[in-house]
Write a protein that binds this DNA or RNA. Sequence first.
DNA 1: AGCACGCCGACT
DNA 2: GTCGGCGTGCTC
Length: 723
Amino acid sequence: VTIARVALPINAEQAFDYWLPAGLEVKPGSVVRVRLGRKALLGVVVACTEDSAVDAARLAPIDEISPLTPLPADVLELAGFVAGYYQAPLGLALALALPPLAGGVPARRREESPLALTVAGRAALSQLAGRSSIAAALHAQIAALPNGLTIDERKQLSVAQRRVLSQWRKAGHVAAVPALRDSASVPQLNLDQRDAAAAIIGKLGTFAPFLLQGITGSGKTEVYLTAAAEAIARGGQVLVLVPEINLTPQFEARVRAALPSATAVSLHSGLAAGDRRAAWQAAYDGTAALVLGTRLAVFTPLPRLALIVVDEEHDASFKQQEGVRYHARDVAVFRARQRDVPIVLGSATPALESWHHARQDRYQRLLLTTRASPGATLPRTIFAPDRDARAQEGLGSVLLAGLRRCLARGEQALVFVNRRGYAPSYKCTACGWEAGCPRCSARLTVHRDARQLRCHHCGHIEQLHAACPTCGNIDLLPRGIGTQRLERALASALPSARIARIDRDSTRRRGAFASLRTQVEEGTVDVLVGTQMLAKGHDFPRLTLVGVLGADNALYSADFRATERAAALLMQVAGRAGRAGLAGEVIVQTDFPDHAVYRALATDDYDRLADTLLHERKIARLPPCAYVGLLLAQAHARADVDRFLGAAHAAALALEQTDAGVEIFSPVPALMARRAGFERGQMVVQSNRRGELQRFLTRWRATLAAVPSSRVRFAIDVDPMGF
DNA sequence: AGCACGCCGACT
DNA sequence: GTCGGCGTGCTC
């Protein structure tokens, strides 16, 4: 009897053996449905053997082989690497590589996308000219519209044509593509861009990591797309990773405009399961020439992979913060090496990890030094005191004057404050009491319209107190500035301005973000107020003034990456100003204009800041100059956390006796010591060598499993984003 | 991950 | 005297 070893998506190390009923066939990579206990699970076959360590009588059969195509060998290997490197069970890593397989029919979304020919459809349908005049006419019409047949155009079709269209759709000859706002032509590349693209193209077919560093607006996307077009023209597939789903539609439109004949698919968690599955299959079959997605897309099977692009590679959302804590950029680099293809990491403000690699010539740095759009210049930066502004709802006189000038010119402004809600604190003026979350070590945020206090970490909500719970005083004041408060302040200071707020609260509804974007593009908005949601990748041509409030807050964070992150965010926000030929201005309210972060912003010199920060990391033995593993533990009772981490610490010290080269730090409370009712603690282990840390973590994890950890949940975070 | 088996406090 | 708390361990 053939026995299949199956890795299951559960938090357990071992794989489980099942016997294969006669007539069924599996190989490593096959996706199968099996029973574990009384639960049916989908697992991945990792090996086929003849015998099992488990009694034959106790073995259960494989219930069903999934219709899903088996995972290819390189994806199995990739999942194996991720499981090993990030100290996660193989079954959980493999689960990341599977498309959603929910048995249920995916919720049918409202049909709004144009239908366009797929690669397969183009080949299959070009031969039907003689067979049916209806089909031939329809084919001619679709072929003439590379951007697809819109809904309106489809309404014009005859019933017979619509019937044919729906058959083609089922057969995969046509597929939905996102609507294009306009079919912009591929822009001319400037010299920098041409050189960069040529360097990448020159390395097609070999592993070559590039750091494409270009100031905001310098046209990194055109470089990616030029290299992608060449890779596709040579018959390859391209994988493009972007940090957030908000960015994919925009990027997708540019891909379709630049590469109208290539089939591009999107892959991110915002898609309906069926669409995701279809995109996955198109990538697997090789019919999709370009796959655009968020971090989970890094596992997509791509038989003819030729190029990987990671856009905004410094972005923290590439790191998964739960479950398998992988970093999609780093996994992408592994994959590029594994598949012998070039990888382009693009950013205006590279992560210090990538910067470090570039400084050591492990990554080739490609620089884009000028703004791509003709006439676009870099914005002028002005600093204004933030302290003075606090009395006026955060809006200082310098910024206000700048806004008035901007509006008088008929241009748009963006005011950035990285806090949603009305105010981040609610305080008693008499005794100093401050509203705190009962379940987290965090302050509650005032949401004035809803008359609520909300915790942004656990979702706790309470009604706004009328009086101080400790002293009875009725003078309770919101302190600090959030987007809602800023929106009100702007409305009263600039009564004629049309103001729009963009943050998680205002864009919660499906499509809200896109509709706000459209308003900005159409010029029906004068002033945008928002959080970092606004900072990323959006190109608003009429926007010439960027104001930044509360920027200093980001510098107070205890997290070792705070400065790096603050600089990246600031430079990104500032880059929204003056992208299309109009002079831009950035007004930053800060009480520390001499801080290195602001100097870097004013002189547009990220390189110097990066070198300074890298030097600091080297001295402090912090990433990327050292390799770190973080053990995170949480439990309802602090004593349980302490006991567990104490045991883990002792175990680590014992291991370290035999495994030199790893430094063990004492357990400490987590940066947020209490969250959602859990007490949280952590401890750091650090090494100068990745391999030594890896060996240590593997042995340590084995001992941790044996530590009596009742009531404690723990996780190992390799290459943590902060601690 | 579920889910059952197994030892110590408040109830019909 | 039981019912039930979750702590521990197994599932192929």
